[in-house]
Write a protein that binds this DNA or RNA. Structure first.
Length: 243
DNA sequence: CCAGACGTTGTT
DNA sequence: GTCTGG
DNA sequence: CCAGACGTTGTT
DNA sequence: GTCTGG
């Protein structure tokens, strides 16, 4: 699945998303080494005027009817296989798909001495884009003028053969040519169905590297650069994972 | 009709 | 809000 | 995802 | 064991 990831940050001048039309980057986003559920993280979504924007949203999707924000603990991921039907996700799936920006995600290996975290990245630790959904939520008895809380969820699908040693579910990683299509609000339900089929077979980004990292990062409060560094001499070489 | 869930993962 | 179970 | 709490009362 | 917070 995807319960923790990292983000290298973005400046106003960043060209990582240059292929997303009409994208205005209004502010910079700092590097994050250990993004956990409930925290803010940048996503890309379509705007009303046909463009796109980057905003930091809270991880853990809150449907508008959620009674309180603890509901988001159960919705950090959405299964690609069932997301069109699930009450908590179907509206967001139909109308509010987004790109979740990362540069790799963590998975935990169960060992005799406890849980060992690993980082999965794309070659060159380049931008890894997850298929996401977003929602807008306002607490039931909030005073007027209370700004809504905007939240997101990350789609998951079956892990591929060579990723399955650590886990049977992986986040849906979108290929750059699908980024804009995924956010397109005007596509038909038929087209959307076709897209989600493709997304399920996913990992359009076909090659990942993996390496073990410090167990200190298992604590969600740990936010230091070495959270993403290879343990000891393992290095980032020889860790290729063809998916 | 009302009440209660609405979710994913992993483990046994 | 909407669906399911009782 | 993992880590940490899981409770009440009264006092500062 | 299970829930909440990060």
């Amino acid at each position: 699945m995807c319960g923790r990831f990292r983000y290298r940050g973005m400046t106003i001048e960043s060209d990582e998303l240059k292929h997303v039309p009409g994208l205005e980057i209004r502010k910079a986003f700092p590097p994050r080494f250990n993004i956990a559920p409930t925290q803010l993280s940048p996503i890309v979504r379509a705007t009303k005027d046909g463009g796109h924007e980057v905003e930091a949203l809270r991880w853990g999707l809150l449907p508008f009817w959620a009674k309180d924000q603890s509901f988001g603990a159960k919705t950090i991921n959405a299964r690609a296989e069932t997301v069109p039907e699930k009450p908590a996700f179907r509206n967001a799936f139909r109308f509010r798909r987004c790109l979740v920006l990362s540069h790799g995600f963590f998975e935990w290996e169960t060992t005799p001495t406890g849980k060992q975290p690993w980082l999965f990245t794309l070659p060159g630790e380049s931008l890894m884009v997850f298929a996401g959904l977003w929602e807008s939520w306002t607490p039931k008895d909030a005073p007027p003028e209370t700004p809504p809380t905007e939240t997101f969820s990350i789609l998951t699908t079956t892990a591929t053969t060579r990723g399955a040693w650590i886990h049977d579910r992986f986040p849906v990683v979108l290929a750059p040519e699908d980024w804009v299509h995924w956010m397109d609000d005007s596509i038909s339900p038929q087209e959307l169905e076709r897209l989600v089929q493709k997304v399920q077979t996913g990992h359009a980004a076909t090659e990942m590297n993996q390496w073990p990292v410090t167990r200190k990062m298992s604590n969600a409060r740990y936010e230091a650069p070495d959270a993403v560094e290879p343990l000891s001499t393992q290095g980032k070489e020889g860790t290729d994972l063809l998916l």
